[in-house]
């Protein structure tokens, strides 16, 4: 049995330790908010937090998460209360198809936790691993800046 903490709950997994975390989350734990996009860490759709750090769960074996704490998109809101970035996503009407947005939000949360006041360039730099084919980048940038600015105030 492999033990990891997911969204605050300790879970036991009977899986191949080399299996990417993505499939453990989606298929063993039913947390389908984390998405498959490329399978090789190129698109960011599968981004989750591993002990607070953003990782591409499609390229992170379950063994790398042993004893660690994983946060997925489902663990971001506190019940009814959305995370400020999720709120900012709604304010800016960011999603189109929505498929990449879990990964985008998880990356953005990690960015603001590391750098509460990122510049435009820092946002672009940090977020460049997350692809959106619908083209929601300008709105994502706005949403991130909205939260950063409100923190400043």
């Amino acid at each position: 049995m492999l033990r990891i903490t997911v969204n605050g709950k300790l879970v036991e997994l009977d899986v191949d330790p080399e299996m990417p975390l993505l499939y453990a989350l989606r298929e063993n734990l039913g947390l389908t908010g984390t998405k498959f996009g490329c399978g090789v860490g190129l698109c960011g759709a599968c981004t989750v937090h591993l002990d607070g750090e953003p990782v591409r769960s499609c390229a992170t074996p379950v063994s790398a998460a042993l004893g660690s704490s994983v946060t997925t998109i489902e663990g971001l809101a506190k019940g009814e209360a959305l995370h400020p970035l999720q709120e900012a996503w709604l304010d800016n009407k960011v999603p189109q198809c929505g498929y990449c947005q879990s990964g985008q939000i998880m990356s953005a949360v990690a960015l603001l936790e590391e750098n509460a006041q990122p510049s435009d360039e820092q946002i672009e730099d940090w977020m460049q691993g997350n692809i959106c084919r619908c083209g929601t980048y300008p709105r994502i940038k706005k949403a991130i800046k909205q939260v950063a600015t409100s923190k400043k105030g």
Binding site: L31, T32, I73, Q86, W89, K93, G98, I105
Partner: peptide
């Protein structure tokens, strides 16, 4: 107000990849 935006940002929407 756009439909299903909150479900999307919560990761609750279902796509064909998510069917179980």
């Amino acid at each position: 107000k756009l439909m299903w935006q909150e479900q999307i940002v919560r990761g609750e929407t279902v796509y064909a990849q998510d069917i179980n």
